[in-house]
Simulated scan of single mutants.
Amino acid sequence: MGKTVKKQRPVNLDLTTIRFPVTAISSILHRVSGVIMFVAVGILLWLLGLSLSSPEGFQSAAIVMHSFIAKFIMWGILTALAYHAVGGIRHMLMDFGFLPETLQTGIRSAYAAFGITVVLSILAGVLVW
C-alpha cells in the first residue's frame, strides 16, 4: 500500500480576515447583479401582466407601485441593471482591446464602474421617487 502524505496547509475559515481586491469585488458584484436581474424579470413580467389584464388590473399595479417597498425594489432593480451594464461595457472595452488588460487598468476601471453606478443609482432614485 502507498504512504499517506499529511498535508500541512493553513486553513483560514474566518472570512472577515480575507481582503478581496477591488477587481474581485467588481467581478462578484457583476455576477450578483446578473442574478438580481434574472429574478427581476419575473417581478417585472408579473407587474406588466397585472397592468395589462384590465383597467382594474392597471389600477392595482399603480397602487402597488405607490408603496415604498415597491419603489425600493424598483430602485434596486434599476441599480443592478446599471451596474451590470457598466460592468459589461467595462469587460467589452478590455476584450476588444480599447483598455489594456493590466492590473492597474483593471483596478481603475473597477473604481470607475463603481463611480458611474453610484451616479446612475442616484438618477434611478430620482426617477423612481
Score class of each variant (00 low, 15 high):
Asp14Leu: 02
Ala82His: 03
Leu103Cys: 02
Gly88Arg: 08
Pro100Asp: 10
Ala110Asn: 11
Ile77Leu: 14
Ile89Asp: 09
Met94Tyr: 02
His66Thr: 08
Ile43His: 14
Asp95Thr: 13
Arg31Trp: 15
Ala124Asp: 00
Ile122Gly: 00
Leu78Asp: 01
Glu56Lys: 12
Trp129Val: 09
Leu15Cys: 11
Thr102Ser: 13
Leu120Pro: 04
Val118Lys: 08
Leu45Asp: 04
Ile28Ala: 11
Gly34Ser: 13
Leu127Gly: 10
Pro10Gln: 00
Val64Thr: 10
Asp14Asn: 14
Phe58Asp: 06
Ile116Val: 15
Leu99Ala: 00
Arg90Leu: 03
Leu123Gly: 12
Tyr111Gln: 12
Ser26Pro: 07
Ser26Trp: 10
Ala24Asn: 15
Leu13Arg: 09
Asp14Met: 08
His91Cys: 01
Gly87Leu: 01
Phe58Trp: 07
Ala85Lys: 13
Val11His: 01
Thr79Asp: 01
Val119Pro: 00
Leu123Asp: 01
Phe68Leu: 05
Ile36Arg: 05
Thr17Gly: 09
Pro10Tyr: 11
Asp95Gln: 12
Ile69Arg: 14
Thr117Asn: 03
Gln8Phe: 09
Thr105His: 11
Ser121Gly: 09
Tyr83Val: 06
Phe72Cys: 11
Ile89Glu: 04
Ala85Glu: 03
Leu120Gly: 05
Gly106Gln: 07
Val32Ala: 15
Gly42Glu: 10
Gly57Asp: 00
Ile77Ala: 14
Leu99Pro: 12
Thr23Cys: 07
Ser51Trp: 02
Ala113Ile: 03
Ala80Cys: 06
Trp75Tyr: 13
Ala70Val: 12
Ser27Ala: 13
Ile77Met: 06
Ser109Gln: 12
Val32Asn: 13
Asp95His: 11
Leu50Met: 03
Lys7Ile: 01
Val39Gly: 13
Tyr83Gly: 07
Phe114Thr: 14
Leu48Ser: 06
Ile25Val: 02
Ala110Pro: 03
Val11Pro: 06
Lys6His: 04
Val118Asp: 07
Ile89Ser: 10
Ala85Trp: 02
Leu78Met: 15
Leu103Met: 07
Met37Pro: 00
Val32His: 14
Leu93Asn: 01
Ser67Gln: 11
Pro21Ile: 08
Arg9Asp: 06
Ser67Ile: 05
